[in-house]
Amino acid sequence: MTIADVAAAPRRRPGADVPPERVPSIRRYAMTAPTFFTVEYAINPWMDTSVTVDTHLAFNQWETLRQTYKELGHAVELIEPIVGLPDMVYAANGGMMVNGKAVTARFTYPQRAGESAAYAEWMTRHGYRPADTRHTNEGQGDLLVVGSIVLAGYGFRTQRQAHDEIAAILQMPVVSLELVDPRFYHLDTALAVLDATTIAYYPPAFSDPSRTKLLELFPDAIEVGSADAYVLGLNAVSDGLNVVLPAAATGFAEQLRTAGFRPIGIDLSELLKGGGSVKCCTLEVHP
C-alpha cells in the first residue's frame, strides 16, 4: 500500500451509525523495565528534576502494562536496563524494525545517546542488521507505521533530513509531519495508529501544512481534544481492536468505543513524569 493507496482506501461514511468491525492481530513488543528510572535532567517540558520519582510505583505501573499485553495474547520480549540510562524505559525511542530491516536511533540529547548501542545490540542478537542515520532520529517516537507507509515526525527531536535516509533503509514511503508544540515533542505523543488505515491525532500539535496532509490521507481520523492530549492520551498502542491508552484520557476512550475499538486504560502516571506513557514504553517489532 502506497501513500496514494491510503488516500484512496474506502472510508467509513461520516456520521454512520454502525462502526466498522475491528479485528485484532497478535503483535510482538519489546520493553525495558524502569529499574533505573528517575528524572535527573530535563530534556522535555514534562520533566521536572524537583519532582520525586517513586521507582517502585513506576515499576508496578510498567508491569501492569506488560501483563496487559500478555493477557491480550501479544508477545513481549524484555531488553535489559542499563544503569546510568534512566530513560531507557521508553523503549519506543530505541529504533525501528519493519520488513526485516532495522534503523538504530540517533538521539538529540547526549543523556540518551548510550541507549542507541543497547538497542542496536538487542536488534543484532535477534537477527537484524541495524542501519545508522547521519541525522538524528528517535525511533518509533517519531516513526509510526500505518499499513505500508511510515508517518514521520520532525521539529523537535528527529531531523527532517533523516526521513529520506529512513525511507531508503526501510524501502517504504515516508510522510513527513511537522510538530510545532514542544509539549508534543515526539510524533507518538500527538498521533496514535489504530489500524492499517485509521489514526487519531491532536491537530494543534501540527503545522498547518501537516494538518492538511493528515486530512487528505485520513479524512475519518479521530481528532482528540486538549484534555486528553495533555495527559498524553494519544501515546497509545493498538492491535486493531484493543487500544491500550493512559487511563486519564477518558474522552478519547469514549471516542474509541464509538468508533468500534475497545479502550483499555492503564495508569502510567509515574512514568509520565519523564514525558512518556504507553507507546513510549513499547517498541513494536513489525513483521
Rank of each mutant, 00 (worst) to 15 (best):
T2V: 04
D5I: 12
V6I: 15
A7G: 00
A7C: 05
A16G: 12
E21K: 10
E21V: 14
V23E: 15
R27N: 08
Y29V: 11
P34F: 07
T38Q: 06
T38P: 00
V39S: 04
E40H: 03
A42V: 01
T52Y: 02
D54E: 13
H56M: 09
W62E: 00
E63V: 09
R66V: 11
K70L: 15
L72W: 01
G73D: 05
I82N: 02
I82Q: 13
V83T: 12
V83I: 14
L85I: 05
M88S: 11
A91G: 01
M97D: 01
M97E: 09
G100M: 03
G100E: 09
A102G: 11
A102Y: 08
V103D: 07
V103M: 13
T104I: 06
R106G: 06
F107I: 05
Y109I: 00
Y109T: 07
P110E: 15
P110A: 14
Q111M: 01
G114S: 04
R125V: 04
P130R: 03
R134I: 05
R134H: 07
R134M: 03
T136F: 03
D142Y: 08
L143I: 01
V146D: 03
I149R: 08
L151I: 03
G155F: 06
H163N: 07
A168L: 03
V174W: 01
S176A: 15
L177M: 06
V180C: 14
D181R: 13
R183N: 15
H186W: 06
L191Y: 05
V193G: 12
D195Y: 07
T197P: 00
A200F: 04
Y202N: 06
P203R: 12
P204M: 12
P204K: 12
S207I: 02
D208H: 04
R211T: 05
F218V: 01
P219R: 11
A221V: 06
I222H: 11
A229V: 02
N235W: 00
N235Q: 01
N235D: 10
V237D: 08
D239L: 08
L245V: 04
A247P: 00
A248Y: 06
G251K: 09
A253G: 12
R257A: 06
R257H: 03
G260Y: 04
F261V: 03
F261P: 00
R262S: 14
P263I: 11
I264E: 14
G265S: 09
L268V: 00
S269C: 12
L271S: 05
L272P: 01
V285N: 08
